[in-house]
Structures are given as structure tokens and as C-alpha cells.
């Protein structure tokens, strides 16, 4: 018993020593947001996805591709809820490379993937000072938060899967005009880079992409006026990126709820059956 206690004390001591190591790694703590798509009953907010799509299309898409997204996805269940006609019209606005047609390009159709903003990776780098703007298709799942011990343990029970969106939103809001006092000691911002609180290493190649009132939202019928702020844009586009990374989230969670319900009922019935069978057997 004494041994166990001593060991536990040692573990406690060790973990208190580890805390600074964690703090040094995660630059600034990222504030977790309340997303409509979090949790068991989470679903995307159609209006938010449409706003996020607008921000993506008008701002981000000039540099960031989304090669796994097809136009048709925008009309699919659990998405931004565009109609098929809207998607058809939208796709037609784009030119798609197709070597099988005359001239090599044609107007897009809903089955086409989102056209890449640059023909090659080298073109993308040349246009962006050597940095490659990452593709958005699964980016929301390719980023995450580093949660300190012990809060990451709870994530398994809450099913926290929004680390990527929280990070992206924080990144978009984490710019500074000048290197702030909170920067690591001796930090020198390289030429052509921008200071960001949350980007690993703090020197990001992307200029602050969003400004207040840059994108004009048209409120949906009965919807309250949405503020035209960087914070609102960042939140909306992060939500849209989550949808791009996980377009089947809504139906997945709906199925999950039914599966859970079945499993609990079935387990209950099996428990009763098992008890009935074992009745009278001392074990």
C-alpha cells in the first residue's frame, strides 16, 4: 500500500514537472468555441455554411484549392443546403480543364471537382512568396489543439472533434501588425512573413486574409443581421471548412444515435436473458 502511495506521489510530482513543457509547446491557449456541429446531436447550421462558403469563395479560393469537393456536394444532405439549380448555375460559372473537349476547357457541371486556383504546385509557390497555400479539403481535420493533461482525457468522453476548427478560427484572429511583446525572446520576423499567435513558429506566409466588411452577407429571411466582422468571417469559414472535411457528419451522427439506442436496448435484453439462464447457478 505504502509503495503504491509513494508511486502515485511520484507520478503527481512528475506530472507537475511536465506542465511547463506542455505550456512551452502550445504557444497561446486556444479558446474552444461552441459549434453547432459538436456533440451527439450536432448538425451544421445551413446559414453559417452558406456564409462560410461565401467567404471561402470570395476570399480564400483565390489561393486555396479544395480538390476533394465536388460542386454537387453543396446540394447534398447535411451540407449548406443549396438547391440543385443553384449548384448547376454555380458550376457553370467556372471553367474546368477537360482534355477530351475541344479547346481543353469547358464550363463546369455539378459532378466536377472544385477547380484548383493554380495549375501546378510551383505556380502556387511562385504566387505566394515560396509558401504553398494548403488545400482546404481535409484541412479542418489536419489541424488540432494540444490539450494539457488531464483535460484531453475528457475529450474521449465528450467526443471533442472540433480542435481543427478552433485552431483555424484562432489562427485567422491571431494576427498582429507588429511583433507583439508576447513573442518568444529574440524573435525576428523574416521578410515577407506575418506574425501570428497560433501558427507554429509564429511566422506565417499568409497575409491577414480578412478585413471587417470585406464580404457582404445577405441575411436569410427571418435571420437576424449578421455582423460583418473578421471574427464572424473567421468563425463562418472555419465551420465551412469542417463541412468540407466531414461532409457526411450529420448523417453519421444521426445513424450513430439510432445505433446507440439499439445497442442499449439489445444489451438490456441480453442482460435479462443472461440473468434468467444463470438463475439458480451459484457462480
Amino acid at each position: 500500500m505504502i509503495k503504491t502511495k509513494t508511486f502515485l506521489a511520484a507520478v503527481a510530482l512528475a506530472s507537475s514537472l511536465m506542465a511547463p513543457a506542455f505550456a512551452a509547446e502550445a504557444s497561446a491557449p486556444i479558446e474552444k468555441q461552441t459549434w453547432s456541429f459538436a456533440g451527439i446531436f450536432g448538425t451544421y447550421d445551413e446559414n453559417q455554411l452558406q456564409r462560410g462558403f461565401q467567404v471561402y469563395r470570395e476570399v480564400c479560393a483565390s489561393c486555396h484549392g479544395a480538390r476533394l469537393i465536388a460542386f454537387r456536394n453543396l446540394a447534398e444532405y447535411g451540407g449548406p443546403g443549396f438547391s440543385e439549380e443553384q449548384v448547376k448555375a454555380l458550376a457553370a460559372e467556372y471553367e474546368v480543364v477537360d482534355p477530351t473537349v475541344e479547346g481543353g476547357v469547358r464550363a463546369g457541371v455539378p459532378a466536377d471537382r472544385w477547380p484548383s486556383p493554380f495549375p501546378t504546385e510551383q505556380d502556387a509557390r511562385d504566387a505566394n512568396g515560396g509558401s504553398l497555400p494548403p488545400d482546404f479539403s481535409v484541412l479542418a481535420k489536419a489541424r488540432g489543439l494540444v490539450d494539457p493533461f488531464p483535460s484531453w482525457i475528457f475529450n474521449y468522453f465528450t467526443g471533442y472533434s472540433e480542435g481543427g476548427v478552433d485552431y483555424i478560427r484562432a489562427l485567422l484572429l491571431g494576427y498582429h501588425d507588429e511583433v507583439p511583446a508576447s513573442a518568444p525572446e529574440g524573435f525576428v520576423l523574416p521578410e515577407g512573413k506575418y506574425y501570428n499567435d497560433y501558427f507554429p513558429g509564429h511566422a506565417i506566409g499568409m497575409a491577414p486574409p480578412l478585413q471587417d466588411e470585406q464580404v457582404t452577407y445577405t441575411p436569410a429571411e427571418g435571420e437576424a443581421e449578421v455582423p460583418l466582422t473578421v471574427e464572424q468571417y473567421a468563425t463562418d469559414v472555419a465551420a465551412f471548412m469542417m463541412w468540407m472535411a466531414e461532409p457526411g457528419l450529420v448523417s453519421r451522427k444521426e445513424t450513430g444515435f439510432r445505433v446507440m439506442l439499439f445497442l442499449f436496448l439489445f444489451a438490456g435484453l441480453l442482460y435479462l436473458t443472461k440473468r434468467r439462464i444463470w438463475k439458480g447457478i451459484e457462480h
Partner: peptide, 23 residues
């Protein structure tokens, strides 16, 4: 008894599949 335990085991299994497949 094994069948009951299997179904119980499927509950956390399903939890991860449907609510946190990437965690």
C-alpha cells in the same frame, strides 16, 4: 454471457465510430 459482453463492448466502439471517428 459472451454475447452480452460483446454488445456492451460495442457501445464504446460505436461511440467512437459515430461521434469521434478521428479522436
Amino acid at each position: 454471457k459472451d454475447l452480452y459482453a460483446m454488445v456492451l463492448f460495442m457501445i464504446p466502439f460505436a461511440w467512437f465510430i459515430f461521434f469521434a471517428p478521428d479522436i
